[in-house]
Structures are given as structure tokens and as C-alpha cells.
Nucleic acid binder design. Structure first.
Lengths: 186, 186
DNA sequence: GATGATCCCGACCGATCGGTCAGGATTCAA
DNA sequence: TTGAATCCTGACCGATCGGTCGGGATCATC
């Protein structure tokens, strides 16, 4: 166990962190590799030495949140439908608040996400989440869930204007209004 | 009254129409002036002769929907609060369906909308709409209304995958779930 | 001290972008 | 017929983009 981080890991981490900060504040497409390199204190060529391409940087930045999403899905898929929906909602809101800066990035990338193979897995998992949020096979409910996700992505856009608690309350309220069907008696 | 449209108007209209189609299908930033010129059958210089800049093209393309939004606001602002909210919801959904292609464009432009003076008026009117949709001065309700607009913008993204009627039902359902408070007895 | 792998960078590439400009057509009034 | 206004364009500009490449440091190993 080395006392000092090896140069490789040190530089990689620095690039990742600076890229995350820039993506969160300006968005993905408005951030150039040169911006990232300057912020990380290295050259653009170094960024491309550690990550093969710009989308690869994005994928690395998004990875922790993707892992968290996978855990969410694993936990939720073990539950019966009704409980699954409720857990999906609350965990999703938690996740959005935790990664609020990156959530904003996602919306920026959405228009070109189909042509970004590095994010194909993330898209797939996003669709699985949508189904759990819908809590039903009804197409309208699935569309409503998609609507909810879009609304949430938009609300994570402006960091700093809202506290985590405020964002949490907003998303929780909105998702419950949209998705929790009032209990009916048969 | 000329039988044939003057060349000026003819070219302008052609550029506007082709730009609208391209913006709707690929988004604003992914459409270059050259793309518009090629589609309109003229040179890029001609596009910039009729419209001073790329944002000016966007503003011209968005103008009809902006006019419709202004009419909506005028009608709605003449009503008492409760009725205003209900009318704002239904008219907004109508408007979104009618201009669904352009609505998608709006979301593409959102990240840079602050630095686009050509759209400043549209932003202002969007904020006024948000207040009417909220139907209350409560900050949470205003945020929910913003959430609703974001959700709607996202759902207009994929043209052709949904009929107008389906999109209308989806947006109407979602907005009512989000915004219409259940009537309470005092 | 030599060697090879790892890390890093300056210089460069081709492409694309929005935008400018001088001037060639065309039209139309005088 | 002439001259001005209008419409349009090819050539060009500076900037920026993501990405490549050859080679200079650095460092562990032998």
C-alpha cells in the first residue's frame, strides 16, 4: 500500500474531478478538453492519454452515479410491485439530490445520447428505472414516469439556487403527485 | 397586391421553414447555418443576409409560438386566479402540442438562453406562464410548475413516436396531477 | 549505467463553426 | 439607357473543436 498515490492515479483523479466540476457548471458540450486540461493543470494531450476520448471522460465522471443507480435497481427489483415503486421514488430522489450537478449534465447530453456508446448502459438502466417508477405496465403511466424524470432533470439545473433539502422536497412532492395513484377500493 | 411573392419574402420564408424543420429534427446547436442554407437552396451568406445572425434565425422561427404564448398570457391575466390556472394549463397543453417540434428546440437552447438576448422576451413570458400555472405565490408550487414545464419540454422531444392526441393526453394528465390541488373544505 | 516502460507535452491536423466582404447579377425607376 | 437599390454568392477569416504523433522527461529494474 503506497503512501503517495502513484502518478497515474493522481493525474486521473485530478482530471476526473475538474471535469466533473466543469461539466456541472457549464454542461458537457460547452466544456472543451482544453478547459479540462487547464483546470487540471496538465495538457490536453495528457487528458487524452488517460481517457481515450471526450465521451470517455464523461463516462468516467458519471460512473459513481451509475453505480449508485445500479444498486438502486438491484434493491428495487427484489421487491413486489407496489413497494418497488415507493422505494424507487424515494431512492431516486435521494440519488438526484446527491448527484445534482451530474444530473444537470445528463440533460445536456440527452440529445446526442443515442450516438454515445459509452452511455448505452446508463440509458438502459434509466429505462428500467422508468418502469419501476411507473409502477404499472400502462403506457400512460410509463410516459408519466418519463415526464417525471425529465422534470427532475430540469430542476437540478441551477446549482446553488436551492439547498439540498429544498430540492429534495420539491422532487419528492412532484414525483408523488405524478406517480402515486390514489388508493381505490375495488 | 402582387400575384407572386416578392423575392425577398419568398427567400425569407423558405429559410425560416427549412430552419424550423432542421431545428425540430436535430435541435438548434446541431444545425449549422450551412445546413439551413443547403436545405433552403441558397448560400450561407444569403441566410446571413436575411437574418443577421444564427440566434436571429432562431428568434424568427420561434416567433409564431411566442405570439401564441403572448395571447395565452393576455387571456389568462384577465381571469381570477383559480380560473386563470385552469385556463393556463389547458391552453399551455394545446400550445405545446401545436408547436411540439419547436418546444423540443427550446430545451436544446435552455442552457445558453441567458446569453441569448434575442430570446429574453420569450424567457420573461415563460416565467409569467410559470406563475399562472402555479396558481399560488407559494414557492413550492412555483417550483412544481417549473418542474411541470421541464417535464413537458422533455416529452415533446421525440416527434413521430406519439400522436398529437397521445401527447395531449399525457401532458394534460401530468399537469393536472402536478398542479391541480385537490379541493379542500375549509 | 544501460534499458525499457510509463507519463507527459508541444506541435500539428483536418474539420467545422459563425460571420464578413467585395462584387456579380437582377430589377426597377427615371 | 443609365444608375441606384436590391438580392445573392464565392472566397475568405479567425477561432475552436476533438484527436494524433513523435519524442522528451522520469523512474524502476536489471
Amino acid at each position: 500500500m503506497p503512501v503517495t498515490t502513484p502518478a497515474r492515479e493522481r493525474t486521473r483523479r485530478e482530471i476526473e474531478q475538474q471535469a466533473m466540476a466543469l461539466f456541472a457548471s457549464r454542461g458537457y458540450s460547452a466544456t472543451s478538453l482544453q478547459d479540462i486540461a487547464t483546470a487540471a493543470g496538465c495538457s490536453k494531450a495528457t487528458v487524452l492519454y488517460h481517457f481515450n476520448s471526450k465521451p470517455a471522460v464523461l463516462a468516467a465522471v458519471l460512473e459513481p452515479s451509475h453505480v449508485a443507480l445500479k444498486e438502486l435497481l438491484a434493491d428495487v427489483s427484489a421487491l413486489p410491485a407496489a413497494a418497488a415503486q415507493e422505494l424507487a421514488i424515494s431512492r431516486f430522489v435521494d440519488l438526484a439530490v446527491q448527484f445534482r450537478g451530474l444530473v444537470h449534465v445528463l440533460q445536456d447530453v440527452l440529445p446526442t445520447i443515442e450516438e454515445t456508446p459509452e452511455l448505452a448502459d446508463l440509458v438502459q438502466d434509466g429505462l428500467r428505472l422508468t418502469e419501476f417508477l411507473a409502477g404499472s405496465d400502462d403506457q400512460l403511466e410509463i410516459d408519466i414516469a418519463s415526464f417525471a424524470i425529465n422534470g427532475l432533470l430540469g430542476e437540478c439545473r441551477h446549482p446553488g439556487e436551492r439547498t439540498d433539502a429544498e430540492l429534495h422536497q420539491l422532487c419528492d412532492t412532484a414525483l408523488h403527485r405524478l406517480l402515486r395513484k390514489p388508493t381505490r377500493r375495488p
